[in-house]
Amino acid sequence: MMKRVFPLILICVLSLAFLNGCASKSEIVKLPRPVGTIAVAGFTNPVFNWELLAGYLPHEGQPIKPEVLQQLDEKMVAVLARHGVKGYARPAITRQCQEIEVFENMGSRREAAFSYWIKVGECMTADYILVPQVIFWQDLRGMKKADYNIQPASVILDLYLIDVNNKRIVRRYHFDETQQPLTANMLNADTFFKRGGKWVKAMELADEALETGLTELGL
């Protein structure tokens, strides 16, 4: 009996994965590429809510390792290259202005955070500045194969495109995902199979986020 039922279940799952795959592709809206000079900031890891441009941290005071931020900068550059984006100021250059500028006491702390990034953009003489922030980072612990004694990868990050001249956030992409096994959420079957039916690392989730996020921002 089980031998007959299993193929039917597999067919249903694969069909659902196909349908979800078509739906997810249609949901990605690529905006026109911004006209003007663009500076790409290095990834930052806000550890207090006042450092954020929007939203709130799930846990304050939990910094991410510097080497993770460096790897994310490298991934950002690689994805922009794959998308054909050229002539922008890279994170390694923009970080020089990030180190020069400082937060000032300007009204609310969140206003100070926004003003800081405007000043970084002005320091770079850019029309736009792309600000990537990692809100939460939890790497995979355990085996990559299906295993109940495992801590799955979890990533929350934001990408902000700020119009420096008009001093406003024009586009934002938010990514928040904790990987789940197929049995926990059948609606994500397409994503499960795209990942090879295995547990992935946090950096792999971040790569997916950058691919989709930069596309949606027009970059």
Results as ranks from 00 to 15, higher is better:
Leu72His: 06
Ala92Lys: 08
Asp176Trp: 13
Phe48Val: 07
Ile135Arg: 04
Lys144Tyr: 05
Thr44Glu: 09
Lys86Glu: 09
Glu204His: 08
Leu72Phe: 11
Thr37Trp: 14
Asn49Leu: 03
Leu16Ile: 01
Trp117Val: 01
Trp117Ser: 02
Pro66Lys: 10
Ala184Phe: 06
Val102Trp: 12
Val68Phe: 04
Leu53Gln: 14
Met124Leu: 11
Leu161Tyr: 07
Glu216Asp: 09
Phe43Asn: 02
Tyr56Trp: 14
Arg168Phe: 07
Pro34Asp: 12
Leu219Pro: 05
Trp199Gln: 04
Tyr148Glu: 07
Thr37His: 15
Arg171Tyr: 07
Glu74Pro: 06
Phe43Ala: 03
Glu74Phe: 14
Thr191His: 05
Ala153Ser: 11
Val77Tyr: 04
Leu159Pro: 03
Arg90Asn: 04
Arg95Asp: 09
Leu19Arg: 10
Arg172Glu: 05
Phe48Gly: 02
Leu31His: 12
Asp147Met: 15
His174Ala: 15
Asn185Lys: 14
Arg109His: 12
Ala112Lys: 02
Phe193Trp: 14
Glu211Ser: 11
Gly121Glu: 06
Arg33Pro: 04
Gly197Asn: 11
Gly61Thr: 06
Leu80Thr: 03
Glu101Ser: 07
Ile150Tyr: 02
Val120Trp: 03
Met186Phe: 13
Ser15Tyr: 12
Gly121Gln: 07
Cys12Ile: 06
